[in-house]
């Protein structure tokens, strides 16, 4: 049985347990959020011994070289010494420059970072309220065009972070940023490839960034964005996207709702977003696809899009996990 040493104490790691499980069970205060190896909130550093490769999946090479790993995905095979990383180095300080309501339950949060921050639209970062509470959000902004980092924060009933943003955060307040991570972004080259983007709710945030990145990169293939909401008020960027599609002949915006009403514009399609998209584009051979939002929908779509002919390596899926 492997042992993990943290803050001078040695803990036994039971078979199949992770470092995070072990430390939490022993009342050690380790920040964490998704517990699925995505959000990087539980980043730790190994100072002695070797951690399994799986616990460094998705980390930057410079992080791997420094011995950073994800405690939630680390089932140690040998004895290791670990510590919490120096958060000063990992987290960038930012101040709130704008807070705008995009819908009843979606806030657009704009942050100005204290030092230059490199990212691609569509990647995600962890936003920290303080040393303990952090959540992952995707970047809707476009580097070089938008001065600020832009996030769409959906209010989750009972959600500690989103309630704080909606109810307590003010312009000028400080938020800390860690990241970016994720490979859901526009890649240069292949400008003639057709692109399909499907997202529900605030799954639109990364897709909006990717669409603008593609257009800015002078993408020549067709770009089809399907955004789904329960009802028309969930289509929170409807006007911006309609005008974007008027300005760019190769960009097509397909708004979808599960339930339309008598006031719903005739441009909005009623139905299941997966069916709507697959009926509009039955053959996806040679396409590139980006899927963001509800995990169940993302997984279902990934399979259907693959079966419709898209290469597995051309499907970028970003299921939104809730802490």
């Amino acid at each position: 049985m492997a042992q993990v040493k943290f803050n001078g104490t040695v803990y036994k790691v039971s078979q199949g347990q992770t470092v995070l499980d072990t430390l939490l069970e022993n009342q050690q205060d380790i920040a964490n959020s998704c517990r699925a190896g995505a959000c990087q909130s539980c980043l730790m550093q190994v100072t002695k011994g070797v951690v399994p490769e799986a616990s460094q999946n998705g980390l930057k090479d410079s992080y791997k070289a420094k011995g950073y790993f994800l405690a939630c995905s680390c089932k140690p095979e040998e004895d290791i010494d670990v510590c919490l990383p120096d958060t000063e180095q990992l987290r960038v300080e930012a101040s709130v420059s704008q807070l705008n309501m995009l819908a009843d339950d979606v806030v657009e949060l704009k942050l100005k970072t204290s030092r230059p921050f490199e990212y691609f639209s569509g990647q995600y970062v962890t936003l920290w309220r303080d040393k303990r509470l952090g959540r992952s959000y995707s970047l809707a902004s476009l580097p070089g065009v938008d001065e600020d980092l832009i996030f769409h924060i959906k209010l989750i009933p009972g959600g500690a972070f989103s309630s704080w943003v909606h109810n307590e955060l003010n312009i000028g307040d400080t938020v800390f940023i860690q990241g970016p991570a994720g490979d859901c972004f526009y890649t240069q080259g292949n400008i003639d490839k057709n692109i399909l983007l499907i997202g529900t709710g605030t799954g639109l945030a990364p897709l909006y960034g990717i669409v603008r990145d593609a257009i800015q990169s002078n993408h020549q293939g067709e770009i089809h964005l399907f955004h789904g909401g329960l009802n028309p008020s969930g289509l929170y960027l409807h006007e911006q996207l309609e005008s974007l599609s008027r300005e760019h002949a190769n960009f097509y915006y397909h708004p979808c709702v599960l339930k339309a009403d008598s006031l719903t514009s005739k441009n909005i399609i009623e139905g299941d977003i997966a069916n709507v998209a697959l009926q509009s584009i039955p053959d996806m051979k040679g396409w590139k696809a980006y899927l963001c939002g509800d995990p169940e929908l993302v997984n279902k779509l990934r399979k259907q899009i693959f079966l419709a002919g898209c290469n597995m390596n051309d499907i970028y899926a970003d299921p939104f996990l809730h802490a």
């Binding site: 399979k303 693959f306 079966l307 002919g309 290469n311 597995m312």
Partner: peptide, 11 residues
């Protein structure tokens, strides 16, 4: 072959 084969299997 992987993509083609796996697509056939899933279908």
């Amino acid at each position: 072959a992987v993509d083609i084969f796996y697509r056939k299997v899933l279908s």
